[in-house]
Amino acid sequence: MNPRQQRDYESYIQGRVAALRRTAYRLTASWDAADDLVQDTFVKLYLHWTKAAAARSIDAYSRRILVNLFLEQARRPWYRRVLSFASPPDQIAEPVDRDSALDLHAAVGQLAAGQRAVLVLRYWEGLDVAETAALLGCSEGTVKSQSSAAIDRLRRLLPGYPVRSANTDRSTE
């Protein structure tokens, strides 16, 4: 990598670390794991910077790396995963507070990795079905079925969650 590419790369990661970190947090439900995931993403981005810089969107390229790394890590045997805690948490998890936004994070964290990725991309990242399918390298039908299954499971995990109907306008509440 020549000096200019190096500067471009460093400038890029400085500018995008916050956004990618939030995406990583949505996927992993842990800031420590998110930081590791983003770092792995940036390392991989560095290795492919020439290609990334020539891509239509570096952001899309980075996000693809991030999601693929997340899915790849989720598929690894349990004993090869990075431990996020120096020692296991010794307190019992607090019961879910239905009024808290953390409920949703906790519930999303219980979904299968693929379903989680689809939800995060579609509803947090704002990608449409086609964009999500392109990023994940799967068909639009798969994205739709994964979304549907994920939402069904969320409904079961959050039975009392204030899920509004499609015709409810929150701005009037």
Binding site: Y9, E10, I13, Q14, V17, R21, R22, Y25, W31, D35, V38, Q39, F42, V43, Y46, A101, L102, D103, L104, H105, L119, R122, Y123, W124, G126, I151, V163, R164, S165, A166, T168, R170
Partner: peptide
Amino acid sequence: KLRELFLDAEPVDEPPLAPGYLESTV
């Protein structure tokens, strides 16, 4: 509506990046 729901659930306790995070990444 799903997007609204998810965006409402944005993390509010975002911790700062560890010092030297970007440097060690590079």
